[in-house]
């Protein structure tokens, strides 16, 4: 069966084209659809098998990154998105998409529950465009199947610092296996800046919901789906056939197919 993926875009979304390209290469049939189409009622989220909210500067990052889109999701698309998630369909929020899902209450908890964490200004006070490494932490989430334990990934954001409401909140997430990716150095160790590019508590780079079908991450897998996107690919021999990011999309597509059938 063909997995129909929707790449949700709005004013200021930037990374939708390459996200769609990565999904296509992963075997899905992606459509880039403006959120207005869903708000107007012309389309429905549940017409799709897989939802990806890509990176960008939705609404200019005005007020706070992802906040306006978060409210659109949690106030105007709440029912549709709740249903999509309840049906265990996969959802990925990348960078700005992660911010929207988090601030909209869809991560780490269920929609409508008050947010217990936020993504805020990088500790450096600046936009950070750099490569780092991620360590895969949680086995429960279907998106991590077959990923190396430690792999390189690019980030590009100004507000990527993950801050839970409390230390206890962070420990709960850990206990419940909801921390999916952490920032590390090439040896897989926690190592401060710049390996943790924003100061996220617990080096958290990506989390999932309790059921594991909603993933939010600040790094950009669609910026490493073919090998020449790697930060220093000219030094690597032999070059891998694909970038590691492709595996995340392939896992999402496989999972979506399973759920649909």
């Amino acid at each position: 069966m063909t997995v129909r993926a929707v790449v949700l875009r709005c004013a200021g979304t930037n990374c939708d084209e390459e996200t769609a390209a990565a999904l296509r290469r992963a075997g899905a049939e992606p459509s880039r659809v403006h959120v207005n189409r869903f708000l107007e009622g012309g389309r429905r989220l549940n017409d799709y098998d897989l939802l990806v909210i890509p990176g960008g500067f939705s609404y200019g990052d005005d007020i706070a990154s992802g906040k306006v889109l978060a409210n659109q999701l949690s106030h105007r698309l709440k029912d549709q998105l709740d249903e999509f998630i309840a049906r265990r369909k996969p959802v990925i929020g990348i960078c700005n998409g992660f911010q929207a899902l988090l601030k909209g209450g869809f991560l780490p908890g269920r929609a409508g529950v008050s947010v217990s964490a936020t993504l805020t200004d990088n500790d450096s006070g600046k936009f950070e465009c750099r490569w780092t490494f991620l360590r895969t932490s949680s086995g429960k989430c279907p998106f991590v199947r077959g990923l190396p334990a430690v792999f390189p990934a690019p980030v590009a954001h100004g507000e990527g610092k993950f801050v839970p409401e409390s230390e206890a909140g962070l420990r709960t997430l850990e206990k419940q296996g909801q921390i999916v990716f952490r920032y590390v150095n090439e040896r897989g160790q926690s190592d401060g800046y710049p390996w943790n590019p924003n100061g996220s508590r617990g080096d958290v780079a990506g989390i999932c919901n309790r059921e594991g079908n909603v993933l939010g991450l600040m790094p950009h897998p669609e910026r490493y789906f073919y090998p020449q996107q790697h930060s220093h690919w000219t030094r690597i021999r032999p070059l891998p056939e694909h970038g590691v990011g492709l595996q995340i999309f392939k896992n999402a597509v496989r999972y979506a197919a399973q759920v649909a059938s």
């Binding site: 990374c15 390459e18 390209a21 465009c129 750099r130 490569w131 020449q228 930060s231």
Partner: peptide, 21 residues
């Protein structure tokens, strides 16, 4: 590093190169 140099996914040779960029 304050400028996004990889959006659109087409940047094959980036402004900063080498293992540590």
């Amino acid at each position: 590093r304050q400028y996004d140099h990889e959006v659109q996914g087409r940047t094959v040779l980036k402004p900063l190169v080498g293992p540590a960029g």
